[in-house]
Design a protein around this nucleic acid. Structure first.
Lengths: 165, 165
DNA sequence: CCTTGACTGTTATGATATAACGTTAGATAG
DNA sequence: CTATCTAACGTTATATCATAACAGTCAAGG
């Protein structure tokens, strides 16, 4: 993985590119104010980069872009900004890809599920209400106090199913 | 993470240590025969190590033990054995911990959910039937062909809830 | 002004994972 | 039984992902 413009060429879902980007940034801004945290330039720019990427980006991909724009050049710069975004519900970490993606629905304080396409690496954020309910039930059954969860599904997105020859 | 004997001191669940280990190994053996794959010495020993560990182990932890016993000393040795076990349903990869754990119920061709305790790092394999049903529904809703999923919940196991002072 | 605390950037290093290649050993065809 | 083929093993080397620790910056409040 030495040169790629991001994992996820297509996006099968709702947050298609730049059109919603401004709205999401505004929501992030508002949320920051609510929570009394600061959406500083690096953090904001990092979120923009994720929004533009339109797919999951590795921390080093983000870093590369930040560096070009005059922000810091070393890994912690990217990791700190990304962790901030994740902690504040503005982005998600996709562990299977060692990557990050902007949250498509920052308004809801949801627990999301991700659908990762094996063919094109696109990541779709899916409604996870039912999944979380079921998970809560399973946790309750064994007396586990659930805090948060990572739900990542792997398969083929609609677009790539057609392309399967 | 330079010296530890494994992540997961306690185990809140069913596969408590060595008692079931033999049964699980037997199942693995049978499964290997079924699938026409070979449970070679390294692979078998790797599974035993996971079973003994009674919690998730990192690849390098496994490697260390294999090396001591005269198997290879380099990372691919561990990764290959672990990947084999995962691919054949004999172990699971816990991405949040960058670790692996023996499958507690190798007979069923299930998709498992994991409950990871933040306090003691124990990993419990939970029944995930309902969760998977819900996930399938969510995937269907957007036309995503789901192959497999990673479901990892973070919280406090029953034992550690009491210990919260 | 001066302290304080959050933020940024850096150096350095740690931790996880895989590519590529030669060798070994188990299976199979002759 | 032997030649051959392939899966598996072990190695070297390197890629990739992530964090610890510390120094400089800057805005807010005393």
């Amino acid at each position: 993985m030495t040169e790629h413009a991001g994992r996820g060429g297509f996006c099968c879902s709702s947050h298609s590119g730049t059109e919603n980007a401004q709205a999401i940034l505004d929501l992030a801004e508002a949320r920051a104010k609510d929570r009394n945290v600061r959406l500083t330039p690096v953090r904001r720019r990092t979120l923009e980069i994720l929004l533009q990427a339109h797919g999951a980006l590795g921390a080093y991909d983000v870093l590369e872009r930040l560096a070009v724009e005059g922000f810091g050049t070393q890994p912690p710069v990217a990791y700190r900004a990304l962790n901030f975004l994740v902690e504040n519900g503005m982005a998600h970490r996709i562990r299977r890809l060692n990557a990050f993606t902007a949250c498509a629905h920052p308004a809801e304080d949801h627990r999301a599920a991700f659908l990762i396409c094996e063919a094109c690496d696109s990541v779709t954020e899916a409604a996870a209400g039912g999944v979380n309910a079921a998970l809560n039930a399973a946790a309750d059954a064994v007396g586990f106090a659930l805090d948060r969860a990572t739900i990542e599904a792997v398969g083929l997105c609609r677009a790539c199913q057609g392309a399967q020859a």
